[in-house]
Write a protein that binds this DNA or RNA. Sequence first.
DNA 1: TACATTTGTTTAATCGTTTAAACAAAAAGC
DNA 2: GCTTTTTGTTTAAACGATTAAACAAATGTA
Lengths: 335, 335
Amino acid sequence: MEKRVSLKDIAQKVGVSTALVSYVLNNQKENRISKEIARKIRDTAQALNYRPNQIAKSLKTRKTLTIGLVVADIANPFFSTLARIIEDEAEKNRYTVIFGSSDETAERSQRLIDVLLDRQVDGLILAPTENSEDQIRQLQERNIPFVLIDRYFPALEANYVGVNNHEAAYQCGLHLLETGRKRIGFIGFQTTLLHLQDRKKGFLKALQEGGVAFEKKQCREVALDATHEEVEESIQQLLKGPGQVDAIFFASNKLSTIGLKYINRLPVTVPTELALCSFDQSDATDLFYAPLTYVRQPLEEMGQSAVRILLQAIEKQGPPVQLHLPASLVLGLSS
Amino acid sequence: MEKRVSLKDIAQKVGVSTALVSYVLNNQKENRISKEIARKIRDTAQALNYRPNQIAKSLKTRKTLTIGLVVADIANPFFSTLARIIEDEAEKNRYTVIFGSSDETAERSQRLIDVLLDRQVDGLILAPTENSEDQIRQLQERNIPFVLIDRYFPALEANYVGVNNHEAAYQCGLHLLETGRKRIGFIGFQTTLLHLQDRKKGFLKALQEGGVAFEKKQCREVALDATHEEVEESIQQLLKGPGQVDAIFFASNKLSTIGLKYINRLPVTVPTELALCSFDQSDATDLFYAPLTYVRQPLEEMGQSAVRILLQAIEKQGPPVQLHLPASLVLGLSS
DNA sequence: TACATTTGTTTAATCGTTTAAACAAAAAGC
DNA sequence: GCTTTTTGTTTAAACGATTAAACAAATGTA
């Protein structure tokens, strides 16, 4: 790499101190500095193509204008879409984003947080993993500005942006009942993550209120890192007679994406024989021959709010902001 | 934010100089330092939960252990999948990734490159935009380590990792001919980006060699930032009789994703009435009722190679490495 | 003329590390 | 017992910026 031009270089060339150069280029003490010299400094800065070393600047100012983003997996469209929105909103505020994927494990999450803090990010946006509550609490104790996104811990009074998972899933359940489904299957995750448990609870509440029978075997839960095969196996179980289901609710985009690919290959017709409904939109839900009824999360608003709340928190301490945004049910042809 | 523990704090607590602490914690001069003191230093570092300030470290060592990643759009699954692979490979080498989306414009690309360099990234992985050749050339002149990915400029002797677009598209064309298609349509981009032009050329070469007639109107090209409507309009044109096509090749995942959603709504049957083939896999190609025949890019190898080549380049200058990986045709039910 | 104020600029410390060089004390060599 | 070497540690400069404080010269005031 070539040697970069520093303040010192400009100072030498113009024949002044580095302090003066710094003042001029940062537009400080404007009323004190002679126009003549200021112009000269600006000109040579331009001529030498000077760009301040942000590392040095950060060391001194203790601000990096950088935010760390920890998602479960940047390859998951839910998170990459969110990442793009966060990137754009950050850029509007002259911030840069460093990201990492936790892979849903607390160890990777902790490692990422450490790396990001070592790099002195000004704040964090986190989709926390299972068993990471202590990590988050530590951030709190250390007064590090952060915002949780998508997932939350009720015991923690922390900034949070997400949707009302319970309510949205409840609406899904209601909808399936209203359209006459009698035996409804659920495919979700076996997890301690509350936002996912909420989806299950909300959905089951609707069924319960609707007075339909709901056996345990109608509720399948796979691991967060489940393979295609495991999800397919679950669907298979649900569709196996006697007592096969006439509707399936997928609790996430990952599940519906895998599920739809599988159902596509089965000799079952949607929605006549089987109704479908998914939490989250995706190319898969759109493209299925009977485009899916799904819960739409307001990603744009989630990402933008997360950034804004974080920047607020960076600027000054304040009470935590918790945003439970409404998620809407979008009706498709699958139910 | 809380005050972080510095070398100085440890030094004071133990009663030694910061230099000694630095040596110990970096495992330098091991044969010189007394075991006793070393242990004490390590213990207090642990006790105080010391974490080095990477910003300060970087300023001194002139290395940030950071690589900048510029893609067209992190929300595009092609790039987000690549990003995840790059992230993992970087992490294996203790590097962190900072990313940005260029949105296919040279201005944003330049701005991103500037921001990343201001932050002193050790190197860059870039999916360059149209008209960014000068930017790239500048990087070269400044001896900044970088690797182009996905796209390239033949006039530039730069590190590059991508696939043989011409050959892969050619194979696609051959395949459609072999399966008996006579009037074949192409949907691509109106662009100066060579990797996309290559796809067109390769594809047309196959048709030409096959001796099938190919009228200009069978070749539709949309803008890189084309809307759904524009893509749909192109398809509509291709399918309009007389002289309607019996096969369509999509030159990218974005085009096939939009295209499939549209074709899904049309009263046309794939593959009997219409064969389809796409460059790149996606959830859409998998999920289409007749899973698509597509060109599979070896993303894993691309991402990993890009990182490895970059790290090589960071370590020491060397001749450029240009990797044109083979992309394979995966046969589906759509052709 | 003497003193106070304003103007324009420099000095020097600092952020948290790294690292070459200096140094004092102990050990070895002769 | 004197010199040389080794051992263990410290000093101090540096990375590239920021910024309070100092300062000299010019200008204003009485």
